[in-house]
Amino acid sequence: MTGSAPPHARAEERRPAVSSESGATGRRRRSWRGGSGNLVTGGTIVVLVVLLALVSLVWTPYDPIPVNPAGRLLGMTSAHPLGTDLYGRDVVSLLMYGARISLLVGVAAVVIAMVIGVPVGVLAGMRGGWVDQVLMRATDVALAFPALLLTIVFGAVWGAGTTTAVIALGISAAPSFARVSRSGTLQIMSREYVVAARAANRGPFWIATRHVLPNIAGLVIVQSSVAFGIAVLAEAALSYLGFGTTPPTPSWGRMLQEGQSYLFDHPMLVLWPGIAIALTVLGLNLLGDGLRDRLDPRAGGAR
């Protein structure tokens, strides 16, 4: 994680709103296979990680919390397929438990970001005028606080931990949701069916819920998968820095940090959590790309 949580700020506004229209001309059609491939690969990876995390709720090969000094730094054995860490904990169990934390952080952060960002964006896009100006200036200010910075500051103020990290990551992802929703809303508001709804005496709430939200849902979903990946990376980075999930709860980032001192003799202790993080984020990004190809009318004609 570079901490770089790319908030996909203004670049996103160039994307058209997702509202599938027929008549996608041949010129605008991208390879269908590519989009579908991304979708399948990404989806498979994500589903696997989710399954792993779900299974960890009821079963892990070993209890990942208590230390076992007798069995530390074991290599790959039949009892411990991926070995044990410096405290003698089973790496497979740690990875499974870590998946839970990563996904939890990701889901919670995305939900917070969505709950704040989407209404703000839709409101700004629908109302326009000074409301829009004020809200967008506010997101500008919010965007000036990088995710990692905000999380560390929150950690300093309220104490580091998973909850603090989730809140901070959620807040810092909200502005990109607001921007994406706003640009989507602007596109939808320029459609004649919205004018038709107004001419049919339908109020803003109806228009927002019946026309705007369903039509920007695709954009928001794509943004969610991107933000999810960013949150997973950020959680790992924070745990690595000691500002995320607190011990003894296992987390991929802290596994990396703990394994770092044994890099030369036991490189796999760093590699396994590293691979877990990279694979999860890769899966989420591929899923996001696949969804974009699927939902973006410019990218493909399919709905």
């Binding site: 570079t2 901490g3 908030p7 990692l148 910075l149 980075a237």
Partner: peptide, 9 residues
């Protein structure tokens, strides 16, 4: 901008 802090890792 985000790298200023992101570089911390």
């Amino acid at each position: 901008g985000h790298m200023l802090i992101g570089a911390v890792v």
